[in-house]
Design a protein around this nucleic acid. Structure first.
Lengths: 231, 231
DNA sequence: CGGCAATTTGAACATTTTCAATACGGGTGG
DNA sequence: CCACCCGTATTGAAAATGTTCAAATTGCCG
């Protein structure tokens, strides 16, 4: 079969001489590259979801997984994406205070890192088109909720978790149920049943066209599997 | 409860006078904004996954859903994300030839659009730091496969679809099964069983540590529910 | 060579999907 | 302004699917 040697990309290493970041630095305002090499061992945690986003990294070698737990439940978070050499990780630092995922090296890795201020300077003038586009893109990505599947909790828990996150923003509550169901990785019928249960438990009030959060506490509790499961 | 009026954001409209894009344009090389207003009706398709990415849009008003079908199966694609005023859609045009999602207005909407060349000029010099970062971010995003869930097909179909997309790149084949399972929205045990079935059907060969694609055709067939389901 | 961790396998159980039928609610035309 | 229609949302019951938990296997690393 045509699969390339699996080790090839894993061992590939970006050198400063040929690095896009290095090249960009020469073209940028700073005229020098603020990123500094740093090695990580396989399995090592690079940063943790929710902690202050003080650093941004560029992957030069190795494979990094991004995990997101979203709500406050499920202990460790699930893998959301995989990053290879040539990608940034933690770039959300440009638009948020805290990391939106955890990052962990799955192989020995070489990362080039700099501080939040470092990238801030490196990116050039705020309000420039490319920088504005970058920020809007990162911002959109940071509120995208990872596609949820049964391993993330059952239907009721996922709906409750979603309402905890999205509810306060209030925007998505008017979306057609079919769309919400898609986002939560379930069928409209399942969403409907889950909302009926949340309503029955007094966490929300639903009509066919409206949805009102009655108790954020109850919602949070149900999101993490609380309340008697009953039946 | 504290949910803002649901209609508020939906009817909010960004004006050129206060638009980030407009402001950025003044700061940019072009010194004028290449984006032009265009209205869309609720339900209207804005662009289709896979078609040439000739335009980029900025959402000024309304709610847009992004759908992705990924493989060749499931007819219409599932909602992957929701975009509100203040976001770009179709910005992948900067790094790819074709749209990676379909976009559809769920409410009446006002979009500001320009051509691929338009943004290209607007973004400023290629190789500048902010632009490089933008491109790397978009590229990473465009290969991210959305977390999968049962509505996307059963376990066997999802694994087969994943192998069809990722297999040729070969990079992810070496990832620990537990990580792959997470990405596919299933438990490691379920992944294991699914791969056993694919192997039994002659689509792949698996050992505990290796995975080789034997027949891409069979894989594609199984990805779309083909072959006798048997049991 | 031995121990550990990841993967595989098995069987019972829980959940979700399905498919069909019903009930709404908004929009249309009279 | 009201009756009627149509598509979306809800409900029900059976079937399919995935999860769970435990046990066995295997490969890797020291």
């Amino acid at each position: 079969m045509s699969v390339a040697d699996p080790k090839a990309r894993q061992n590939a290493r970006i050198l400063c001489a040929t690095c896009e970041i290095g090249a960009a630095s020469a073209a940028g305002s700073g005229h020098f590259c603020p990123f500094v090499d740093r090695s990580r061992q396989a399995g090592e945690l690079i940063y943790l979801e929710g902690e202050p986003a003080n650093h941004v990294w560029f992957v030069k070698q190795g494979i990094i997984v991004l995990l997101r737990k979203g709500g406050e439940n499920n202990a460790e978070g699930r893998v959301r994406a995989v990053r290879f050499p040539g990608s940034f990780i933690g770039l959300e630092a440009v638009v948020t205070d805290r990391y939106i995922d955890s990052a962990r090296a799955t192989t020995d890795a070489v990362l080039c890192g700099t501080t939040r201020e470092g990238v801030d300077t490196w990116l050039g003038k705020k309000g420039a088109p490319a920088r504005t586009a970058l920020e809007l893109t990162l911002r959109a990505e940071s509120v995208d909720l990872p596609r949820r599947a049964p391993p993330d909790g059952n239907a009721v828990e996922r709906v409750a978790a979603w309402l905890c996150e999205e509810g306060p923003r209030g925007e998505t509550l008017t979306l057609p149920r079919r769309i919400v169901a898609d986002l939560l990785g379930m069928r409209p019928e399942t969403l409907s049943r889950a909302m009926a249960i949340l309503a029955e438990r007094g966490a929300i009030e639903v009509s066919r066209t409206n949805l009102r959060i009655v108790s954020e506490n109850k919602l949070a509790e149900l999101a993490s599997g609380g309340s008697l499961p009953s039946s």
